[in-house]
Amino acid sequence: MTPDWFAVVDATWPAADSRTDGTLTLREGRGGGKRVSAASASGAVSEPQIEAAEAAMRQMGQPPLFQLRPGDEGLDAALAGRGYSIVDPVNIYACPVSQLTDLPMPRVTVFALWEPLAIMRELWAEGGIGPGRLAVMDRVKGPKTGLLMRHQDKPGGVAFVAIHDGVAMLHALEIPPHQRRKGLGKWAMRGAAFWALDNGAHTLSVICTKANEGANALYRSLGMQLVGEYHYRLLQEERQTA
């Protein structure tokens, strides 16, 4: 059975609060980024619904922001007509966990641990992943872990992984500039796969923006398949950081 990729995203990177009003789900992100702040639709959406959602998001201190999924063409057109622009088109990749557990892990390359160590929080902060996004990680209810990569006895990167319905999804992969181009991204994904296998997951998945050429190349090089995509619509005069 094909996983519900958007349910996996919501469970492994959850909003601070959410509520459904008819065919629209509104999310309160509290500084956790677009994924936890965007409204999404489960069916046709009327103009009055859009207007009510805009007012509700502003009341939450968030700019009006919608996540557009396959099948949302009508809402996409309506938002374009209201002056919304497309931001951050996203790819979803996945592969069987077994595909990335075929090679043994080198010693002391990837450590899986939760709660995050201070050095992990520092690495995330250097990559722009601050308290709002760390709070998202804390909210995850299911199995979860942080990954700390090391290279030549120095911190090499950090990531977060959580599981929903047999699917492990990796988020917040950050490798500092001086540790890039050393294969740590691949070992991060393999480390995530081993942790996922140990915790009962059958699939490993990850999301990244289409503009991130390095990340897309990494996931394709590992044989991960494109299984979904989406984009956001945001009012032009109210842009926020990714």
Rank of each mutant, 00 (worst) to 15 (best):
residue 105 M to A: 14
residue 106 P to E: 06
residue 107 R to N: 11
residue 109 T to A: 12
residue 110 V to Y: 05
residue 113 L to C: 09
residue 114 W to A: 05
residue 118 A to Y: 07
residue 119 I to L: 11
residue 121 R to I: 06
residue 123 L to P: 00
residue 125 A to P: 02
residue 131 P to M: 10
residue 131 P to C: 05
residue 139 R to T: 01
residue 139 R to Y: 02
residue 139 R to Q: 04
residue 142 G to N: 02
residue 143 P to H: 07
residue 147 L to N: 04
residue 147 L to K: 03
residue 148 L to I: 09
residue 148 L to V: 11
residue 152 Q to E: 15
residue 153 D to M: 09
residue 153 D to K: 10
residue 154 K to P: 00
residue 155 P to N: 08
residue 157 G to K: 01
residue 157 G to V: 02
residue 159 A to D: 00
residue 159 A to W: 02
residue 160 F to V: 02
residue 161 V to F: 00
residue 166 G to M: 04
residue 166 G to F: 07
residue 170 L to S: 03
residue 171 H to I: 10
residue 171 H to L: 04
residue 171 H to P: 08
residue 172 A to C: 11
residue 173 L to F: 03
residue 179 Q to L: 10
residue 182 K to C: 12
residue 182 K to A: 15
residue 183 G to L: 12
residue 183 G to M: 14
residue 183 G to H: 12
residue 185 G to Y: 08
residue 190 R to N: 05
residue 191 G to T: 03
residue 192 A to L: 06
residue 193 A to V: 02
residue 194 F to N: 06
residue 195 W to T: 05
residue 196 A to G: 07
residue 198 D to G: 10
residue 201 A to H: 01
residue 201 A to D: 07
residue 201 A to G: 01
residue 203 T to M: 14
residue 203 T to C: 10
residue 205 S to G: 13
residue 206 V to A: 13
residue 209 T to P: 00
residue 211 A to P: 00
residue 212 N to L: 08
residue 212 N to T: 11
residue 214 G to L: 09
residue 215 A to K: 00
residue 216 N to K: 01
residue 219 Y to S: 04
residue 223 G to P: 00
residue 224 M to V: 07
residue 224 M to I: 08
residue 225 Q to C: 04
residue 226 L to P: 06
residue 229 E to F: 13
